[in-house]
Design a protein around this nucleic acid. Structure first.
Lengths: 235, 235
DNA sequence: TCGGCTCTGTGCGCTAGCGCCCAGACGGCC
DNA sequence: GGCCGTCTGGGCGCTAGCGCACAGAGCCGA
């Protein structure tokens, strides 16, 4: 068969489909370019499209009252956005915003619902992904409570690296503070410390991971736990 | 028809089923009495039974490293334990422990899987419940990060009251500290403050809610948000 | 070239919650 | 009655992170 869309199988969930199912699915997808900081969904919004990031990634952010926000999940080429539809609910209770710009495949919500019925191989895979996401939510809740900012930042940078598939990316400390749910100054200090330890370099938003292994050691165990969970359930 | 199991429809999810489906389901359930502090599931454990609490409730607790633990969800007669099976995964990533002793209906995991196929009315309801639970996870993550212990305690007491269906229940501060993810002393202080404000009385584990409205005012908005989410999706 | 904007770094006083320890209070049991 | 285990309360010094304010550094466009 012909892989009609560029990079279609760069998304792990799609790549796990049998060729025939994939073909059928792709026929109903359109390639889009997600642009940085775009909001795909506000809490309570109706989900119009589901997204399969291929070389981009999305943050799931819980926001309450007037607080900065707190990222509780990250969706890259290993996942999808719009899992609420798997449960028959076409809204989503969190912010979803583009954190890594780049290409994704998207599908209209109605089409997606039909696709779930027409392509029996799809639902089981996505269900398992949803399960992993739930585990990630719980893990992140405890991580946020107990781990210090520096370890959480390290974890976060590693998660971003994996999804950006690059040791370099651009993000301001202001943005990071909204993800970690701390002040910008808190990020400055944690990033400064990581930089002093030669694990990363940071310059006006340009982040480079210098020592991935060292950074893993500096990160809390939640990074590993997340990855293991994903591999165990979907690998 | 005859409601064969005592209090069967005390569980909201079951009560929402058509009579015929309910009858079928109940034939495969057995009534059990959950005892306080019983562990229904450790992270990674295989789920042997699903539970529909009728007059009992269960805490979902995320635990990392050597920390006290953090409750991320509460399952009472409005819900069920074992939703992982809806997603085709027969493990569960968190601790599940009995927090309010009392009767529940339980079903063998294999039977439950068969039931999902045989009783088409079941899956949509449980799916929606799972969606609500996911929202609760995200909400709790942010709540834990941003809200002070006193407000979180107030929220927690209200959630417990709703599930215990009583203004009085028994819980030590030690236990509470594991739910809220704080020191026991932190609970002492927060509870002392609520007591001073005549919202609750607290005596050697015997908690009485004196002023529910006042307690709602003292709680963070997450209590209301959770309830509204449940009503919107399942009400 | 200059001015303005964005991003980063720092300093200071403050607070919530921590870790540790011990005192008191209640209740059950011998 | 006396003892012990459990539960609550409080004190003390400490730390992580907060809020605020300001200074410097790079970049871009007029």
């Amino acid at each position: 068969m012909q892989r009609t869309k560029p990079g279609a199988t760069a998304n792990s969930l799609l790549a796990a489909l049998p060729d025939k199912s994939l073909e059928h699915l792709l026929a109903n997808c359109e390639p889009v370019d997600l642009v940085f900081a775009d909001i795909l969904c506000l809490p309570g919004d109706r989900i119009r499209h589901v997204y399969f990031p291929t070389d981009s990634f999305i943050s799931l952010v819980a926001q309450i009252d007037g607080y900065a926000g707190l990222e509780v999940g990250m969706v890259g080429s290993e996942g999808m956005f719009g899992v609420g539809l798997l449960l028959g609910v076409d809204v989503w209770p969190m912010h979803a915003l583009v954190q890594g710009a780049g290409p994704a495949l998207r599908m209209n919500a109605d089409r997606f619902r039909r696709e779930l019925e027409d392509t029996p191989a799809l639902q089981p895979i996505l269900n398992r992904y949803l399960y992993v996401l739930i585990g990630q939510l719980a893990q992140t809740a405890a991580c946020t409570r107990f781990h210090v900012v520096e370890a959480r930042l390290a974890r976060w940078l590693l998660m971003t690296r994996d999804r950006a598939r690059s040791d370099e990316f651009y993000l301001t400390q202001e943005f990071l503070s909204h993800m970690l749910g701390v002040r910008r100054v808190g990020v400055t200090q944690a990033a400064g410390s990581l930089q002093k330890r030669k694990l990363i370099s940071y310059n006006r938003g340009a982040i480079t991971i210098l020592d991935g292994n060292g950074l893993e050691a500096a990160a809390c165990g939640c990074y590993l736990a997340d990855n293991q969970s994903y591999d165990r359930i979907l690998g």
